[in-house]
Write a protein that binds this DNA or RNA. Structure first.
Lengths: 244, 244
DNA sequence: CGGCGCCGAACTGCATGCAATAGGCTCTCG
DNA sequence: CGAGAGCCTATTGCATGCAGTTCGGCGCCG
């Protein structure tokens, strides 16, 4: 099955499956990941699995041991907080770039579309969180695209690879929490504000809103941490450690 | 030579050598990198070389082709500019974190040391650029360390992997340019200002200075682009393309 | 009884063989 | 003479064998 780094390659398969396994907590954190056993378990050979190891190591999910082999990383609360803040900084820069580089109203059509759809979802009496998360991801993707910068895109992709740092990760898990509705309303308000700031070419304002928007995820995290059932819905929750 | 991801492993050797080759422009940009020929040339097998490919692809120096294989990335002026601006943003965040998280004056000792050494170098009638670059890298490294955040550290490492985005890259190549001395003085002024801002706990100011400090690299880039001999000293210069 | 050293096994990193594909070249046909 | 299709080769992705090392267990000595 040569000549194909595309989806369907063994390497891709191994990477996705391994990431899933890690997020699900099937692999004990801070413990050596066995190469051979995993190869059988995932149905791939050791060579593509090693490639997957390298990829996840670059993403920060695995850490290479000095003596060889890899361990699953664990994250302190500070680590998670930093990742979220960092995402805010990067998305802030993306928003600023978007504002500074906007050439025509037409470029905004995608973002406008998503924003309006989000408006509808949030306005419902009982918003469907899955819909919100999906649209939310779309919104953030569209915004980053408007920055027109590969460097920014890649940097954000790297940060978001961490399970908790993703825009929608913390929303999905907090279903049925008391302040759910409130947070959604605020988030959507910020979405609209960012859109307007970008449209008006107000880069600095767009940047600041994006940063604050990410901090909403921090608030979410605190809420989720206080709720056992919500925690169980959070992908990658087993990777968090209480003590430093 | 098993059980050793440490230096000396074939993978590490291949990665370093390959990066060097790319920076030197020995591999034509936007052209398929031959796996077999390179393996012989670097004296490693194809397996570790493939690992090196994956690493450099994550760093943004290589790009995976849809049909398999890799090509050396080329960078437009905008790409380089974005990378530098992004480094500024990230170092700005690092500086802010450093200011916000400083616990004692003692933590600053390393940074203070480097700053004073830089003072001496800059004060000389004919500053030795190599010394400045080395100390400059040290300064930036120390500042990032003070941020006390793995996420930031990794993000910056990713950006700096691009040849031009590195703090000292553009300084080293501009020897004998007219405004060399001026730029060094300004840079060092900013170094001192950042140190003071961090010491005083002024996160916002530290952040802004760091951003402006990175933009000095942009100015450097423009100068270097106007000078053929300076361009030849710039690592990775062959990767830049004039037209978009 | 505890610490130290040795031995074994398991595991990892590396090299290479194999199979399959994509692109290039040629040959043929319109 | 140009365009399309078919074959062929070069090249990549994958699987597996091999060798070396590191860690755990066990025995010995103090």
């Amino acid at each position: 099955m040569p000549r194909g780094d595309v989806a369907g390659s063994q390497t891709t398969k191994a990477t996705l499956a391994l990431r899933e396994l890690i997020f699900a907590g099937e692999l004990e954190a801070e413990q050596r990941v066995p190469e051979i056993g995993l190869a059988e378990r995932l149905g791939v050979s050791r060579t593509p699995l090693r490639l997957a190891f390298a990829t996840l190591a670059h993403e920060g999910l695995l850490r290479a041991l000095p003596g060889g082999g890899f361990v699953v990383c664990s994250f302190s609360l500070t680590d998670v907080s930093d990742a979220i803040e960092l995402r805010g900084v990067l998305e802030g820069t993306a928003a600023r770039f978007a504002a500074e580089r906007l050439e025509s109203e037409a470029e905004l059509s995608g973002l406008v579309d998503v924003t309006e759809q989000l408006d509808i979802v949030v306005a419902e009496r009982a918003p469907v969180l899955e819909q919100f998360v999906e649209l939310n991801d779309e919104y953030h993707g569209a915004l980053v695209e408007l920055a027109k910068s590969d460097a920014i895109t890649r940097a954000i992709a790297n940060v978001v690879a961490l399970p908790f740092a993703s825009p929608g990760a913390l929303i999905a898990s907090q279903a049925a929490l008391a302040r759910e509705q409130e947070i959604l309303v605020v988030a959507q308000h910020q979405h609209r504000a960012m859109l307007e700031a970008v449209r008006a070419g107000h880069g600095a304002r767009a940047e600041e809103i994006a940063r604050e928007h990410a901090r909403l995820a921090m608030l979410n995290l605190e809420l989720v941490l206080g709720s056992e059932p919500a925690l169980e819905r959070l992908p990658g929750a087993p990777l968090m450690r209480r003590a430093v």
